[in-house]
């Protein structure tokens, strides 16, 4: 299994606060990887570390086996669309395509033009005057024109309306499925990722809560309903991710590792159930005492 991106105990600190901590991941090539977590979970930090914009404060990150920080040799392998799709706003789309050709040795200008023409992006208008969706498409076209081995997109659809969002993701999928490009795509909205990703990383409070292939994740978890449960081990259950209790009954989200005790009713879960279970599990960084309100 080839690995596109690998991190080991990776950490990044801003002042005293760790934006990312203890992050160990292996992303196989050819996957569409979703990076999900609430705002401030460390998604952008992880992506910036992966493309070499940030220097790790702990651990290491390797992109196709090479450290990306201060290493221009990895740049041809990555296509990166940063959050809010920053582009030179006074450049026209045509000029940006030209710019890419001058800043990259490998550059498929025809591909970019073809995409932009198909999407009806005006070539002679400064991109600052395009709509958010159009600008995101321009940024994506520029990233794809590099013909990268790994495409990283930081909240590419966050500023788009639902229709533009679906179109963007569809066009993204359409263009990477044939080329075998690995994609790492972050979002704070699960719905964006559910339909597109086959691999998932869940970040919360600067830590990785869950990572793996979507099918495996769904397969490994079950919802169990049974008598009130106070923490004793249950046969066939590996870990309890989340538990909710009423007076007489408990509902558990659990990773299972065998045949579950027949006392419990077992339900299949959706990807959303699993992710929400893990996100709810993460403690928040701001405590009630920070706000000086009673706990």
């Amino acid at each position: 299994m080839d690995v596109a991106l690998e991190t080991e105990q990776l950490g990044k600190r801003y002042g005293k606060r760790w934006a990312l901590q203890d992050c160990s991941l292996r992303l196989p090539t050819g996957r569409i990887v979703g990076l999900v977590g609430p705002n401030g979970a460390g998604k952008s930090t992880l992506l910036h570390l992966a493309v070499g914009l940030l220097r790790p404060d702990a651990g290491e990150v390797r992109l196709f086996g090479r450290s990306p920080y201060d290493n221009p040799a990895v740049l041809p392998d990555i296509g990166f669309v940063a959050q809010d799709t920053p582009l030179y706003r006074d450049f026209t789309a045509a000029e940006l395509v030209q710019l890419g050709g001058r800043m990259n040795r490998r550059w498929d200008a025809a591909l970019a033009r073809e995409r932009l023409a198909q999407l009806g992006i005006p070539p002679k208008l400064p991109v600052g005057r395009l709509s958010g969706g159009q600008r995101a498409q321009v940024a994506l076209a520029l990233a794809l024109a590099k013909r990268p081995r790994l495409l990283l997109l930081d909240e590419p659809v966050a500023s788009l309306d639902p229709l533009a969002r679906r179109e963007f993701l569809q066009s993204l999928m359409g263009s990477v499925t044939d080329s075998g490009t690995t994609v790492l795509l972050s979002s704070h909205l699960l719905a964006d990722l559910e339909r597109t990703c086959d691999h998932l990383v869940v970040l919360h409070s600067s830590r990785v809560r869950l990572a793996g292939a979507v099918d495996d994740l769904v397969d490994a978890h079950r919802q169990l309903v049974g008598p009130r449960h106070i923490g004793e081990p249950i046969a066939g259950v590996g870990t309890v991710v989340r538990a909710r209790h009423t007076d007489r009954q408990s509902t558990l989200l659990a990773r299972i590792d065998g045949v579950v005790d027949p006392e419990w009713t077992v339900h299949d879960v959706t990807l959303e159930d699993v992710i929400l279970g893990y996100l709810a599990d993460g403690e928040t960084t701001v405590t009630r005492t920070d706000w000086e309100v009673p706990a």
Binding site: H48, V51, G52, L53, D70, N71, P72, L75, P76, I78, G79, F80, A82, Q83, D84, P86, L87, Y88, R89, G100, M103, N104, R105, R106, W107, A139, K146
Partner: peptide, 17 residues
């Protein structure tokens, strides 16, 4: 300030150059 360094520095040219 405008975030465009994230665009410029992830093209094919190292930021020192």
């Amino acid at each position: 300030e405008q975030g465009t360094h994230r665009f410029a520095w992830t093209q094919g040219i190292g930021r020192r150059q």
